[in-house]
C-alpha cells in the first residue's frame, strides 16, 4: 500500500471518515504520521473552540474579580480559584462522572458524556479561569494616566471600557495570553486519557501515538512525530498571536512596542 493510499484511508479517521480498522501489524512511518496527524484535528478543534469561547468568559471574569461589588467579585474569585487550584486531569475525571450521573436524571445531558462536548466544557472553564487571572493582572496594571486622560476627554462608562480600558488590558496581557493559549493546546492531549471514551477509536493525536507505542513497543517513532506536529502548531499560534500583538501595539512609538516573548508550556 503506497503512502498516498494510506493518507486517503486514514487522514480523517479520527472523525470517522475513511478506513475503519486501524493498522494492526507492519506499521509504516507513513501510517503513524497520517493517523497522528488525523488525531490533531481533535486537538485543534478543542483548542480553537475553547480559546475563542473562553476569551469572552475570561474578560467577564477579570472584570468581575476587579469589581467593587462583593456579589460580582466573590463568584469570579471562586471560579478562578477552583479551576486554577486543581489539576485539569482531575477536573476531566470529575466532570465526566458528573455528566454520567446527570444524564441519568436529565436526558439532555447525554451529549455531555461524549468528549466533543463534555471535555470542551471543562477546557472552556479552565482556559477562562487561567486567562481571566492574566487579564485581571493586566487590568490592575493599566497606567493610571491612561484612565485619567480618558476621563479628561469625556469618555465614560461603556465607551471608556471599549476604547481605552479593554484594548490596553489586552495589550498588556497579550504575551502571557499567548503562552496560555499554547498551553491550552497542549492540555487538549489529556482529554482521551481521562475517562472520556474514544468511540470507535476516534481519538486525538496523543491517543494514536500511544496506540502505536503500545503496539510496536517502540516509543522512538510515534512520539517524535507527535512532537513535530505540536511544534508546528505552536509556531502557527505564535505567528497568529504575533500579528495580533502588532495590531494592538500599532499606536505606540517604534521603540516602545513590545516584542512577544514566548515562554511556553507547563502542565496544569
Amino acid at each position: 500500500m503506497s503512502c498516498w493510499e494510506t493518507v486517503a484511508d486514514y487522514a480523517f479517521r479520527s472523525i470517522g471518515f475513511g478506513e475503519r480498522l486501524l493498522p494492526r501489524s507492519d506499521f509504516t512511518i507513513c501510517q503513524q504520521a497520517t493517523l497522528i496527524g488525523s488525531g490533531m484535528i481533535w486537538n485543534v478543534y478543542f483548542g480553537v473552540v475553547a480559546l475563542f469561547s473562553g476569551f469572552v468568559m475570561a474578560t467577564v471574569l477579570a472584570l468581575g474579580k476587579a469589581s467593587q461589588s462583593f456579589w460580582l467579585r466573590k463568584p469570579s474569585e471562586w471560579f478562578i480559584f477552583l479551576f486554577r487550584g486543581s489539576p485539569l486531569f482531575i477536573q476531566f475525571f470529575f466532570a465526566y462522572f458528573l455528566f454520567l450521573n446527570l444524564k441519568q436524571a436529565v436526558p439532555i445531558f447525554s451529549p455531555f458524556t461524549a468528549a466533543w462536548l463534555g471535555a470542551l466544557v471543562v477546557l472552556f472553564c479552565n482556559t477562562a479561569a487561567y486567562s481571566g487571572e492574566i487579564f485581571y493582572g493586566a487590568l490592575l496594571s493599566i497606567p493610571r494616566g491612561d484612565i485619567e486622560a480618558a476621563d479628561a476627554y469625556g469618555f465614560s462608562g461603556m465607551t471608556r471600557f471599549r476604547k481605552i480600558t479593554w484594548p490596553t488590558m489586552l495589550r498588556l496581557a497579550w504575551p502571557a495570553y499567548t503562552n496560555e493559549s499554547i498551553f491550552l493546546f497542549h492540555a487538549t492531549t489529556l482529554v482521551f486519557f481521562s475517562g472520556f471514551p474514544a468511540y470507535q477509536q476516534k481519538g486525538d493525536a496523543l491517543y494514536y501515538a500511544n496506540y502505536f507505542a503500545d503496539k510496536t513497543f517502540n516509543p522512538f517513532v510515534p512520539y517524535p512525530i507527535l512532537a513535530g506536529y505540536f511544534i508546528m502548531l505552536s509556531l502557527i499560534i505564535i505567528g497568529f498571536f504575533g500579528l495580533m500583538n502588532k495590531r494592538l501595539n500599532r499606536h505606540l512609538p517604534q521603540e516602545e512596542r513590545r516584542k512577544l516573548r514566548i515562554r511556553p508550556n507547563m502542565i496544569r
Partner: peptide, 21 residues
C-alpha cells in the same frame, strides 16, 4: 527548549518506555 516545546503528557508516556528500554 525541547522539553518545554512539547505536551508534557507525551513526555511522560515517552520517557517511561524509553528509560526502561
Amino acid at each position: 527548549a525541547i522539553v518545554r516545546g512539547v505536551p508534557d503528557i507525551a513526555f511522560f508516556l515517552f520517557f517511561v518506555i524509553a528509560l526502561d528500554q
